[in-house]
Amino acid sequence: MVRVSREVMQKAATQLGSLTKTLSEALVCPLSKHPLRYCEQSNSLISDAIGVSFPIKNGIPCLVPRDGKILEEEVASSKPNNDPNLSAVNEENQGRGS
């Protein structure tokens, strides 16, 4: 019974997408080594230093630089013209790699 309730709790935790304390304390952006911010809305970790968001899949954060997506606001503010191209190409490249 105890075990079941624990499992339920764990499931709830992963559904919420919240990271455990251990992880959120230890993780930094793999490229800039600056702290990451957890975004509940998109369920991702955001590196504000370089404006990249890293997805969290099933409670496992994916911090390989290749998995990162450049945030649109960031790109839009710096280079307004290339925003759609960049993200599209980014996806294309990811597809090619796998």
């Binding site: 251990t22 992880l23 304390e25 230890a26 993780l27 409670g59 994916c62 390989v64 630089p65």
Partner: peptide
């Protein structure tokens, strides 16, 4: 042992300095 999981690349280690 409390295990946590993270997808990462050894060449770009996403771990904070002096933390483990």
């Amino acid at each position: 042992i409390e295990s946590v999981y993270v997808v990462g690349d050894e060449e770009f280690l996403p771990i904070k300095e002096s933390s483990v």
